[in-house]
């Protein structure tokens, strides 16, 4: 059975698109047939992060409006065989999505894929509601910062009330917390909410912690999803998160400040 996973947050700019690209690529690396859909109509970004922007011909809105077939809009990822990207429109407005249209696309994708990853736009309006409506599981991306935690709490409430599962009285959407842009050093210094704090505030199981890292910018500059940035903390952290999502046990890494060695301190590094 295909699983639909929404990557959401309420607050903008916390790392949803970065996470959608890395998570979908990570699932594909593990051999799952995966499609990642950009729901951010008007602010197309996922194609850039996936590095396939020059291959976009048709998009989600074209398919919904009957201007193209789903197969024509799906772009095969150049790094992973079993991964496809469904880009969104750059020009239309967010009301171009219809509930019926999205439902039809989901039904079709369910037949072909193991995982359908939905990259939600920020906010709690129609675009975000559309992205989370069909979800079986949700990854709530949160930064250790007051406004992000508050918005995550609101999105958790919306998942519990407005998703298809909630409306049809099915088992609720399975929620996961993903803490991103985490800086262990600042946590140690008491300037940043710790992962324990955020877990306690949101009462949601922690799927992973992605450290703040300059590698993310290098990755987005080149259009390479973060899991492919070999030997980097973020790639490893995203791979761990994918493994946990698939039910494997992985200890948390990159959550302690890096100890600067004596010599490095002495001579500078």
């Amino acid at each position: 059975m295909a699983k639909i996973v929404v990557v959401t947050s309420g607050k903008g700019g916390v790392g949803k698109t970065t996470t959608s690209a890395a998570f979908a690529s990570g699932l594909a690396l593990r051999g799952y047939r995966t499609v990642v859909i950009d729901f951010d109509v008007g602010l197309r970004n996922l194609d850039l992060i996936m590095g396939c922007e020059r291959r976009v011909v048709y998009d989600l809105v074209n398919v919904i409006q009957g201007e193209a077939k789903l197969q024509q809009a799906l772009i095969r990822d150049k790094r992973c065989e079993s991964l496809y990207v469904l880009p969104t429109s750059q020009t239309r407005d967010k009301d171009a999505l219809t509930t019926e249209g999205v439902t039809a696309i989901m039904d079709e994708l369910r037949k072909e894929f193991d995982y359908i990853v939905c990259d939600s736009p920020a906010g709690i309006e129609s675009g975000a509601l559309m992205a989370l409506y069909h979800a079986d599981e949700a990854i709530v991306v949160t930064n250790p910062e007051v406004s992000s935690v508050r918005d995550s709490d609101r999105i958790l409430g919306i998942l519990a009330a407005r998703s298809r599962r909630a409306e049809q009285g099915e088992e609720p959407v399975k929620e996961h917390l993903l803490l991103t842009r985490y800086s262990p050093k600042r946590v140690e210094g008491g300037e940043m909410l710790s992962l324990e704090d955020v877990k306690e505030l949101l009462h949601t199981p922690l799927l992973g912690v992605i450290p703040e890292s300059e590698v993310i910018l290098q990755a987005s500059n080149q259009g390479i999803p973060a899991v492919h940035m070999d030997h980097s903390d973020v790639a490893e952290a995203y791979k761990d998160m994918v493994a946990r999502f698939l039910g494997e046990e992985r200890p948390l890494r990159f959550v302690q400040p890096v100890k600067v060695g004596f010599f490095k301190r002495l001579f500078g590094g």
Binding site: E145, V146, V149, R150, V187, G189, G190, E191, M192, L193, S194, D197, L201
Partner: peptide, 10 residues
């Protein structure tokens, strides 16, 4: 510490 203040406010 400011993180503590943040937690209490939240």
């Amino acid at each position: 510490k400011s993180a503590h203040v943040a937690k209490d406010r939240l």
